[in-house]
Design a protein around this nucleic acid. Structure first.
Lengths: 321, 321
DNA sequence: GCTTGCCGTGAAACGCGTTTCATAGTTTAC
DNA sequence: GTAAACTATGAAACGCGTTTCACGGCAAGC
């Protein structure tokens, strides 16, 4: 492997000059620049990126902590990050944590060990302040709302509230909801919106652990076995909504007549299912999080709220009197 | 930032000894090990991973080249890679290329510049031999079949053939297919299987550019506008199949009576739709590709064919006489 | 009693690009 | 005409952990 010292010898210049040529520094005479370039070609030199990283103290890499790379909405955020990273000459390392605390710890460790310049936390299970202990080593940006933390987020409270109010405006009074992980920040906000807006008497219309399309099918079966059931459901994701709708149709129920359903995400699935849904621009979240992670002002803990929008479909419509 | 030389001074040992403690090398006396550990705690030392990488010449990182991180089957392969990488103490860098040649070139460049120890090419648009020119810099593993190349793949010819033969055994003679990118290796194999097995007279039952759920809906509209149309369709993916089915049901057609549909992938969508599908263990592909990329025998160009299996559902069943 | 062989330790070289600082020759400026 | 400001170049230090090689001490083997 040839290095810049070999180049310097071959071109009969100093390593400094070689480095300058490599980095397009102006103070190099044309003939020497030529000589160095010839040496590069002759010796087939290729820069060792690791050495650059050590020398500059920058990896031009940001880390992404998320539970599952293949869950649609996490993948959508990743997509946004991937685009910006490429445009800005950055790379990104993804760590799939499965929400396991020790795995999350590994990711934080990577930031401390300077494997990455910054971290984007898409979702996590460790306490926020434990994660923030690592902020001394570099920027940490969350994709959900927390106080005094750099974050790009959607307001799950108002987003859920808009879904619930829509159902109410359609004439529904018996409204249920689906939640993902019971104790996540997002679920808590959603539950609060539910309690404040619908004031349900009991909790039998809160369906927990709704994450996948198959969870949706499970919930549909649960619903159809209930003696007293809601007439409308605000779900945790389009996938869950799809699972519910497809399973119920299979059983002969009609949507929205027997059960009105609103999804969450605004995915392509929603379009094809004509799903009424709360659209979330996940790519934008990824993009913004990336830019905070590489910006200089991350210490100010910028907070960016990304708006959501209710997309009308046919799975939740005004009830006819 | 404290480094091992600071530690050596503090613990009154040589840097060699510090390094040995850090790497659990046996030849260190207990009292010195203790002293070094105390110094680590006292000075709050954290290893600089970049320096380790430069020194060892290994990044313990592999690169992944794929067109879109958020397409379900690419994400599933990524999921497999992510799991193994974590277990083996590796990281992975993902590059999203959008099938743009210059972007793919950037990824290859990264291998040459020793940013990664190896490369997994999930899908690509550059010619194979152009990619292989970079094999001198490290292992390159493909997730599709090519001669004389390390690869983990499914046999798209036989996989498609099994789908087509299933449709024939159900009594169908008018069979169409959906293909993704027209000129990809996979599409060519699939088309060949179609020609060999079904021997269609013309090509109006080959639906191109079928990638997303919305492409499926488009194809459904195309189909319903055709005067002469197939009675069965083998699709390029479960998502495309879902798009077709949901759109056709919306239009009042019945599946499989009006059109039998077989999907491809074996995704969770298939389960909920009761889709007949060709199941592909994408995670396994990712896992195997990873292990080849970090193994010593990659120069032998191991080839691993991963079997597929037809999963019965209700969207393609035997036609009643 | 002498040769192997293992244990423990450290100096120095190595991997390799960037950057600071000093030096010298030219211009430009007033 | 002299000071100030560039331009051009290189030696050496820097970032930091790993590894080779050499050496002293000590125990096992014959």
């Amino acid at each position: 492997m040839t290095n810049i010292r070999d180049l310097a010898r071959e071109a009969e210049v100093s390593v400094t000059t070689v480095s300058r040529v490599l980095n397009d520094h102006p103070y190099v005479a044309e003939d020497k620049r030529r000589a160095v370039q010839d040496a590069i070609t002759k010796l087939g030199y290729i820069r060792n990126q690791t050495a650059v990283q050590l020398s500059t103290g920058q990896t031009k890499t940001i880390g992404v902590m998320l539970p599952y790379v293949d869950h649609p909405y996490h993948a959508a955020i990743l997509h946004g990050i991937a685009q910006c990273a490429f445009e800005e000459g950055y790379r990104f390392l993804t760590w799939q944590t499965n929400y396991i605390a020790s795995h999350e710890q590994t990711v934080l460790q990577a930031l401390a060990q300077r494997e990455v310049d910054g971290l984007i936390v898409v979702s996590h299970s460790l306490p926020v302040d434990e994660i923030l202990r690592y902020e001394q080593y570099g920027p940490i940006v969350f994709c959900e709302h927390h106080e005094d933390v750099s974050s790009v987020y959607i307001n799950h409270y108002t987003a859920f509230q808009s879904g619930l109010k829509t159902l109410q405006s359609f004439g529904h009074t018996q409204i249920g909801i689906c939640l993902g992980r019971p104790d996540s920040t997002n679920s808590r906000a959603r539950k609060q919106a539910y309690q404040d807006t619908v004031s349900p008497e009991d909790t039998s219309w809160i369906y927990q652990q709704a994450l996948t399309i198959e969870d949706g099918a499970d919930i549909a079966r649960q619903w159809s076995n209930q003696s007293c059931r809601p007439s409308a459901l605000l779900t945790a994701s389009d996938h869950v909504a799809a699972g519910i709708i497809l399973e119920l149709r299979k059983q002969g129920y009609r949507i929205p007549e027997d059960l009105a359903v609103i999804g969450f995400d605004g995915s392509d699935l929603a379009v094809v299912l004509n799903l009424t849904t709360v659209a979330v621009p996940y790519e934008t979240i990824g993009r913004q999080a990336f830019f905070i992670a590489i910006s200089d002002n991350w210490r100010d803990h910028p907070q960016i709220e990304i708006p959501t929008a209710l997309l009308s479909g046919l799975t939740a419509v005004k009830v006819k009197e």
